[in-house]
């Protein structure tokens, strides 16, 4: 067992971990933060997306021992207009993928703010990102929604993106 300090949503937790434990399982089973969901458990579905120092990652492929001392944000630590936008646009049906969608979208908006291009960005050297529907869909391709609420999800994200300085929709 290895002792690690996990800093989650502004609170530090000292936990004893088997090094095999994923960040996802540590959050859910040891810290009781079950908002982060386990879907495929192999990095394909995005349900386990959390933010680490602001970057979105798949917590199922992260060994918890690697993330000691980092600032981890889960859905329990998020209060953002994007959540209301998801409700308004019907960006969910069953809701299982929603915590991952929200965390992923917040990470994605920060990437866009920083001018990061995507695979569909036409002019790579352009420092300003325009979050068209195609851009949002490409950038959110790591989050699956088996209810198929993609139109609402895309609308919610573009609505929030358009209200921000520096990013246009």
């Amino acid at each position: 067992m290895i002792e690690v300090e996990l800093r989650v949503n502004g609170t530090a937790h000292r936990v004893e971990l088997d090094p095999r434990v994923s960040l996802l399982d540590a959050l859910r089973e040891q810290l009781g933060l079950t908002g982060t969901k386990k879907g495929c458990n192999q990095g394909a579905c995005g349900a386990c997306t959390v933010l680490v120092d602001g970057d979105r990652i798949a917590a199922c492929l992260a060994l918890a021992v690697q993330y000691g001392g980092r600032e981890i944000t889960t859905i329990e630590g998020v209060a953002h207009p994007l959540q209301r936008a998801f409700v308004r646009t019907d960006g969910l049906q069953c809701g299982y993928c929603t915590p991952g969608q929200i965390c992923s979208a917040l990470g994605m908006l920060a990437e866009a703010d920083a001018g990061m291009p995507s695979a569909v960005t036409e002019h790579l050297a352009e420092p300003r990102v325009t979050l068209s529907s195609a851009e949002v869909r490409e950038r959110m391709s790591g989050n699956l929604c088996r209810c198929g609420a993609y139109n609402g999800i895309t609308d919610a994200i573009r609505e929030v993106a358009g209200a921000r300085p520096g990013v246009s929709s």
Partner: peptide, 16 residues
């Protein structure tokens, strides 16, 4: 190189 990287995996996995 930028295009190849951006066409691989997903936003979450590229961050890892």
């Amino acid at each position: 190189l930028a295009q190849a990287l951006l066409s691989g995996a997903s936003g979450q996995l590229r961050n890892m």
